[in-house]
Amino acid sequence: MSTYLPTQLPGPQPDLDDQPFWDFCKARELRIQACADCGKLRHPPMPACPACRSMRTTWRAVPGTGTVFSFTVCHYPAHASLKDVVPYNVSVVLLDGTDDIRIVSNVIDAEPDEIAIGMRVALAWDEVADGQVLPRFRRAP
């Protein structure tokens, strides 16, 4: 277990729309919400499919690899717990096995001057407070 950011940083607050996403994460499975009618993936979870407006949903497993689509290296600690942690990166990861699904995450083993758009990454599950597990990433070949 490597905690990239302090556990004092507030964690996810699942609600009725997205509880399954976070429950799957706790089981270390990355599943993206999909339309049960037309099959289109969407993220974050929402009650209807923007493509066909169906409200029937399912959860599709994705490979857990991807590429960095964008990133920023945060130097300013905007939460008290981050004072001794900066600089850290926030990376938008475009997931393999999807057309365009991205998740906001971190690449935990990339130095600030290494991270770049197009970098290949793979899931590195990270347990934080209350047994919640977050989908972070590490560099991949």
Binding site: L9, P12, Y76, A78, L82, V90, S105, N106, V128
Partner: peptide
């Protein structure tokens, strides 16, 4: 939930 745990906290970021 999709921002804060990953340190994405502010408009600048």
């Amino acid at each position: 939930s999709y921002m804060t745990p990953f340190g994405l906290l502010t408009p600048a970021q």
